[in-house]
Nucleic acid binder design. Structure first.
Lengths: 181, 181
DNA sequence: AATTACTGCTACAGTCATGCTGCAGTTAAG
DNA sequence: CTTAACTGCAGCATGACTGTAGCAGTAATT
């Protein structure tokens, strides 16, 4: 692939992720315009709208998978893995803000990958509970949901907090809550 | 208004909220069909699609406002008001699952009301912090975002937990977090 | 029971997004 | 420099959604 074509492709994917996050019904014309290319250029690379969506999803899943690998959720100590995961996943969520849970439903392949990654996190939360890092009286599913939402909130409602500090706050809130002693 | 007309109107609003939450680009035909009425019937009550959206938003805002009033966020003790608010707002969020922050942007009137209600919650969180219920080292804006997200998670990812128990878990997580002592 | 409100159905025009095609011009790469 | 890749532009067909209208039939209200 020629270098300028690769640049355009990346621009379309990133712009698409951004606009589709704001409005999932954004037209391909709007994405193309915002990305600085013609509508037909997008159609050359992605035959259908679905294909474009799939490509955006796969790009996000690729980034997320790298974070999951590097966090060493299975081997590393719970506290270390947790912090590494949060610090890594926040930039991914900011760069690919599309709502995966909602939009991937019609893409079986992406949905399958998403569930695989979700299962890895479920297992990690279970391990954290087993090793005594979580209160035994709260359901793991709730802990998992809270972790997701804390990450999403920090990523999108506080876009200016740098990943390390963001991870500090998320992990601290996750474990200790916000109430005064 | 005739009784059956009122029933249909309510059905359209509730169905609209549900379908629009799943997919914000749901067509009026789909909403009408799911609500059990003809498309033109919906058009008679709501001249444009925007008008239908506005009506759904107002319905949600009405319910939320009632909860805010009854929680007595200004007068009641912080712990009481917090629990009352969470217990009340979860059913509202379940009944009107449309994402307010995202979809009300183009409706100035709804957006204004939403901000007013948001400000009341901001003030309440500030009061909680002032009265020592929250850790002094966390930004109130973060506390506020976490509260919102805990409510949303509980409302939609755990639809089977009854409001009282749901409020218990949300408030407990909010104040104490999920980490073991 | 009579009246009025309300609904379903059919039909039509307008708009917009999608998907495809051909061609001329530009630009990266050898 | 030459070539091949890539792009922008103009155009066209299709389908979906929106919004409006008229009319006959049904059901709530008095």
């Amino acid at each position: 692939m020629r270098a300028d074509a690769a640049r355009n492709l990346a621009a379309v994917l990133r712009t698409g992720a951004r606009l589709l996050a704001e409005d999932p019904s954004t037209s391909m014309s709007a994405i193309a315009g915002e990305a600085g290319v013609d509508r037909t250029t997008v159609h050359r690379r992605f035959a259908t709208r679905e294909a474009l969506l799939s490509a955006v999803f796969q790009a996000k899943l690729d980034s997320a998978e790298r974070v999951l690998d590097e966090a060493r959720l299975v081997e590393a100590p719970v506290a270390v893995a947790l912090h590494r995961y949060v610090e890594g996943i926040i930039p991914v969520s900011r760069e690919w803000p599309v709502d995966t849970r909602r939009m991937m439903q019609k893409d079986p392949d992406a949905d399958r990958r998403r569930h695989e990654q979700s299962a890895r996190l479920d297992a990690f939360v279970q391990r954290a509970a087993d090793e005594g890092y979580l209160r035994p009286d709260v359901p793991p599913a709730w802990a998992r949901a809270v972790l997701d939402q804390l990450v999403e909130s920090m990523a999108h409602r506080f876009p200016d907090v740098a990943p390390p500090q963001a991870a500090d706050l998320v992990v601290d809130t996750f474990l200790n809550g916000l109430g005064a002693a």
